[in-house]
Amino acid sequence: MTKPHKDIFGKPVGHPVENWTGCALPPRSDMIGAHVIVSPLDIARDARQLFEANGKASDGSRFTYLPTGPFADFDAYKAWLVGMTANDDPMLHTIIDKPTNMAVGVAAFMRMDQNNGVVEIGNINYAPALSKTIGGTEAMYLMMKRAFDELGYRRYEWKCDDQNAPSRAAATRYGFTYEGTFRNHMVYKGRNRDTAWFSITDKEWPEIKAAFEAWLAAENFDAGGLQRASLSTLMSAHRS
């Protein structure tokens, strides 16, 4: 390991990052898995399918912890997508179920800090057809793989409302490390948000990647599609 830098008193002040030049923005190209395709959002192709897929949860619960929504009609939802895709950040992606070729969720690369190699995964909204499926997990793996393996990012962030228990559980399941909670961080939808922060670093990624790939392997599922080993179990095994 490279020796840490030291101050004038000889005290270590951090390990050097050698030959660092920053990171490129993610390319606008598909990430293709066995179960899903994660594709830069195309409003003409995806908007109607996403709106209808979200409509399967008619109580609007899919938008409880998102800053916008639920949307009263398709036009309102489409207008939101237009705004979300107007710039490179956030870079919203559609998650397409391969067997049906239907759009069933969205997720974004956002707050991309190219100089320091930091990117956040956010604006995650899975329709009922994607929730708790192999494809839903594979989509997260594909986006991590792009950030770390293809682009060389050093830090991958997940942030959520501290009261969003499913999101906190998902972050842990996906291998993120909880870093703390920013109290009174935001006001949205007329209420306070304390924000829980999670991250994965490039040094942790190889073990996390191995756990994802072990979980996604065909032999990890029986004939009925039930997992033999959970992702949480495999994360623990690969990171021990």
Rank of each mutant, 00 (worst) to 15 (best):
C160W: 12
A169R: 15
G152V: 08
N184Q: 13
T137E: 02
V187W: 14
M140G: 02
D194S: 13
R154L: 15
P128F: 00
Y156Q: 11
F176A: 15
E179S: 12
A169I: 14
Y178W: 13
A139I: 04
A147M: 07
A127Y: 00
G136A: 03
R154A: 08
R155A: 13
G180N: 10
K132R: 13
E120H: 06
W158N: 12
F176V: 10
Y174D: 12
E138L: 07
E157F: 13
Y153E: 04
Y178D: 08
K132S: 09
G180C: 14
F148A: 00
R155F: 14
M144K: 07
N123T: 00
V118I: 09
R183Y: 15
I121N: 03
Y188S: 10
E157S: 11
L142M: 05
D162F: 10
T177R: 13
Y156K: 08
V119Y: 01
E138P: 00
V118M: 03
E138Y: 11
H185P: 08
N116A: 01
M140D: 01
M144V: 01
E138D: 04
R154W: 04
L142Y: 06
N184V: 03
E157L: 08
D162Y: 15
V187A: 12
F148C: 02
R191G: 14
Y156C: 14
N123G: 01
A139R: 03
M140R: 05
G135Q: 10
P166S: 08
T137P: 06
R173C: 10
Y126V: 00
S131P: 00
A147L: 11
G190D: 04
G190Y: 01
Y156N: 09
G180I: 15
G175A: 01
Q163C: 10
E157M: 11
T172P: 00
E120R: 02
A170M: 08
S131F: 00
